[in-house]
Amino acid sequence: MCRWNAYFGDPIVIDELLYQTDHGLIDQSLHARQGVETTNGDGFGLGWYGAAGGEPARYRSVTPAWSDQNLRDLAAHIESPLFLAHIRATTGTPVQQTNCHPFKHGRWLFVHNGVLNGFHAMRRDLMLAVDPELYDGITGSTDSEVLFYLALTFGLERDPLGAVERAVGFVESTGRAHGVEHAVQMTLGFSDGERLWAVRYSSEHRSRTLYVSADRATVQALHPDNARFKRLTDETRVVVSEPLSDLPGVWVAVPEATALVIQRGQDEQVPFRPQVPEPAAA
């Protein structure tokens, strides 16, 4: 599988999360503790938004994250209020740049940890459901990118969470038609540059791990002498496949079949319920 991080809050230098924590994403590329694989060396990607908004920038490479000096240099000099980073462990598709996350369309970024079981059997049906106006945007061969484009097809721009629920519902119904009982295994992160969504879900209700940082007051009360935590604000949130440190009370497990909406002001935690879209929509 894979590992990913997402950050939302006041601008920070990106390497603070990738490199400067005890068990940051770059360390996880070699020493993941809660993933299916210990090593995630089949490429990586970083997508970030500038303080002024607009479409995100992106850097992807097929080299292992731990050995890419360009990533280290970029991360030490880029400051961002919202970014997503991903390290890849392929489930069978080629190691190539177009298969590295985050996937991007317009202002949207999308990362996935997991697998669409039976993807090769379903692939034709899933691809044919993608809006023809979007189809040419698919440049890789992963199930993750197809899931992203299904979400775009089913209304990501106007109803982000509902669109992902419809995309997952469509994959599950297509899977059943092909004899696949548990088609979806996923944690997702996606953003339009203004909000960040994170989802933990699987068809068999045994999803991969996902955590969100506790609120500022809790973290600062537990660790009053930590210099990094003194800089936190009420808006700061970090979502991770596995904790970046072993400090108690900092990381809260996201429940099964749950979506987070992280935004300015009050965040939301809601049930994630896949829906089979209407035939006309599919």
Rank of each mutant, 00 (worst) to 15 (best):
S173K: 07
H182S: 13
E181W: 10
L188V: 00
G189I: 01
V184R: 04
H182C: 11
S203T: 11
V199N: 05
V199K: 14
R200H: 11
F190A: 03
E181H: 09
S191N: 01
H178I: 13
A177D: 04
S202M: 03
E194Y: 13
V184I: 13
L196G: 07
S191M: 04
T174R: 10
R176L: 09
H182R: 12
R200N: 01
E204R: 14
A198Q: 08
S173L: 03
F190M: 04
E172L: 01
E181Q: 15
Q185P: 14
M186E: 04
E194Q: 15
M186P: 01
E204D: 15
R195V: 12
A177S: 11
G179W: 12
G189D: 11
L196H: 13
G179K: 09
E194P: 02
S202F: 05
A183R: 02
H182T: 11
A183P: 04
V180E: 10
S191Q: 08
S173T: 08
S203L: 04
D192Q: 14
R176W: 08
V180H: 12
S203M: 14
T187R: 04
Q185D: 06
E204Q: 15
Y201G: 06
S173A: 06
D192I: 09
E194V: 13
D192R: 12
S203H: 03
W197Y: 13
Q185W: 13
G179C: 03
V180K: 15
Y201E: 03
V184E: 01
A177V: 08
T187Y: 05
H178T: 08
R176F: 07
L196I: 07
E172F: 04
S173V: 10
E204A: 06
G189L: 10
S173P: 12
D192P: 12
V180Q: 10
A177H: 13
Q185S: 05
M186W: 01
H178L: 07
W197L: 04
E194R: 15
M186L: 01
T187Q: 06
L196E: 14
D192S: 08
E181Y: 11
E181T: 11
G175C: 01
V184W: 02
R195K: 15
H205M: 09
A198L: 07
